[in-house]
Design a protein around this nucleic acid. Sequence first.
DNA 1: CACTTATATGACCACGTGCTCATGTATAAA
DNA 2: TTTATACATGAGCACGTGGTCATATAAGTG
Lengths: 115, 115
Amino acid sequence: MWFKMSSEKHENDPDNSNYKELDEETLFVVTQSFKALSDPTRIRILHLLFVNEYSVNEIARVLNLKQSTVSHQLRFLKNLRLVKFRREGTTLFYSHDDEHVMDVLRQTINHALHT
Amino acid sequence: MWFKMSSEKHENDPDNSNYKELDEETLFVVTQSFKALSDPTRIRILHLLFVNEYSVNEIARVLNLKQSTVSHQLRFLKNLRLVKFRREGTTLFYSHDDEHVMDVLRQTINHALHT
DNA sequence: CACTTATATGACCACGTGCTCATGTATAAA
DNA sequence: TTTATACATGAGCACGTGGTCATATAAGTG
């Protein structure tokens, strides 16, 4: 026996009044997450942080970026709680802090590599 | 018996010369994919296209957007091959065309909804 | 305290992005 | 061919973004 799902098409709902939009807050959160991943510098930083923690200067040296550039981007990522840091003397070691976002990044990189 | 993995830390590679950066093309592709998802209007459009196909005017009406706005964003998404369309008379029906990106979007929306 | 090292921050600038208006193009009907 | 409908496109503008330089702050050392 077959049932017609209301989501199959919208021919029974010509005005599409049945469609449930994303609520504003969800839309904002999702947008922000992807915005964090929409810049090559931030992706390079997060990619570096997949496995290890790194200090600001290490990140700058390995990725050949200015220290201030790295600091700015880390602040951006920190505000979105995608990275965290621990202090050791005057040095700050940054590491990733959002498994879900790192998973999404990992998936997308792997997908890009295998196509 | 325990082995020390080289990826455990980078203390055996102080200059981190062992680190393999993302190649430029992969970085570009990944960045572009996320850029497509980093705008609320584009997310709303793709979210609408999760299940059904929609004409340009339908999208504009349901999401309360100008027709030209929708057209511009659809061109953007089309260039990245995230959507496709079929013609029926003068009407163009758009639908999604990249399962991976739609999956990533679905995951992230669900994650945002459940936190 | 002064001095060094590591990082953060603010001002500025060049560039990118998204929306709107006006207009162009394509298909179908009369 | 004219007219109507659906969609695409270009120009212009307001705003956002990322990098750089200069400078500030913070912690450690002597």
